[in-house]
Design a binder for these strands. Structure first.
Lengths: 226, 226
DNA sequence: TTGACTACCTACAGCTCTGTCAGTAGTCGA
DNA sequence: TCGACTACTGACAGAGCTGTAGGTAGTCAA
């Protein structure tokens, strides 16, 4: 219930304030629907007055823009973090699992979807410019190393880019519509089905880059635990 | 300019009216962002008064629900139509192309995304119940026939379901974020890149079901024309 | 301590959007 | 032709939201 600290009013630095406001807005957006970004609600969540938000972002539009801009960055960080996971030799499945998990939990996928629906993102040059390329390069390095280690040819660049793109789109679709798709395929409330799907996708990708050495169709999964 | 026909007032059947209103709402949604569903705007588009909409849908919520419900059905129809494309032996690439194309053009993907963002869809039992299953079955029949013809084993059921699911998620992600993803991978405004991506995805899927007979990595595409 | 700066506040204005109400006008069957 | 039914309308009310204005209170430097 918003513990009243010593001073009657808490005073943040402008940067802190912007950060907190963005976080709260993102929370609202992730939980409620697209029309859930109301200055008054966000302000209430933070225990501040709504004009404070206007003070920091000029107007609602400004807030929304900032939100959209931060979405891409956050998404990127998520994926990069998942890619540079501790074990450098981990299976594609594990990496994918991590990416999907992170993405689903943080509302980033939804946020991104929303902002792209709201047509905020197309603002030309905003945000990190070619983040997917960076991702693709990171993945290319990994795949290249793995391939060399296994004595296979290094995958083509564009294939890697496409793989990243596929994961990105699938991730978005999954985060957005995972439950709905579960229902539509007759597995309502069956989270395991969704997880099996991710595994399957990982296999497909792995098979694409490592054309299945033995005749067994399903590649062995170095299971990530759960 | 709404040509004024004979009578001062046009009177539709209730069903017609609902249909027209839904269509107009969908148009609005596809063009404008998520907050573009305003009764007054929709009414203006149709040249009717906004209380008429309330008359047919009770309240805004009712309209939104109806919209969400229709989204799934429309999506389904789109895909089924693309699947049952004239040439029964057409390549997966061509089918995928058609699906993505249809989906992107009709605003159905965006509509679906929106409604799932707005958490309208999870209304338990509404809409076609297991449409993805139906799709999967259609695809299974196709793949089964193709496989038998080529003397390969019929693919497993769940693999087919997953393939459909992958296409569905990717489709959604692509429809939503295609342009953004183009930008993010350094191919701003490069529609060809997007198309190559779809081809690539088709290949991956084809390879998954027909494990690449000759040693050439890229499966030949019976190009769909463009 | 004092002054400048600015994060933050309360109060209010104006607008827009949904929803209600009571009446109007097409349409169809008797 | 008349009556019932109901799609449709204009006018209005109420609520909620964004944005403004002017004052308040932390904080830091001189």
């Amino acid at each position: 219930m918003k513990t009243p600290r010593g001073p009657l009013r808490r005073r943040r630095t402008a940067e802190e304030a912007r950060h907190e406001i963005l976080a709260a807005a993102q929370r609202r957006l992730a939980e409620g629907g697209p029309e859930a970004i109301r200055l008054q609600d966000i302000a209430r969540d933070l225990g501040i007055a709504h004009p404070t938000i206007l003070h920091h972002f000029e107007n609602r539009e400004g807030l929304v823009r900032a939100l959209a801009r931060s979405a891409i960055g956050a998404l990127n960080d998520d994926i990069l973090r998942a890619l540079s996971t501790p074990q450098p030799g981990a299976s594609a499945a594990a990496v994918l699992d991590r990416i999907f998990e992170t993405l689903g939990e943080s509302g980033h996928a939804r946020l991104l979807a929303w902002s792209s629906l709201a047509e905020r993102a197309p603002r030309g040059d905003t945000g990190e410019p070619q983040s997917l390329q960076i991702l693709a390069e990171a993945l290319q390095r990994r795949l290249g190393a793995d391939a060399k280690a296994a004595g296979r040819p290094v995958p083509q660049r564009e294939d890697t880019v496409f793989a990243v793109r596929l994961v990105a789109t699938a991730m978005l679709g999954d985060a957005l519509m995972g439950e709905v798709l579960n229902r539509l395929s007759g597995h309502a409330g069956d989270a395991a089905h969704q997880r099996r799907f991710r595994r399957w996708l990982a296999e497909v990708l792995e098979n694409t880059f490592n054309p299945a050495p033995p005749p067994k169709r399903r590649v062995s999964l170095r299971s990530s635990g759960k």
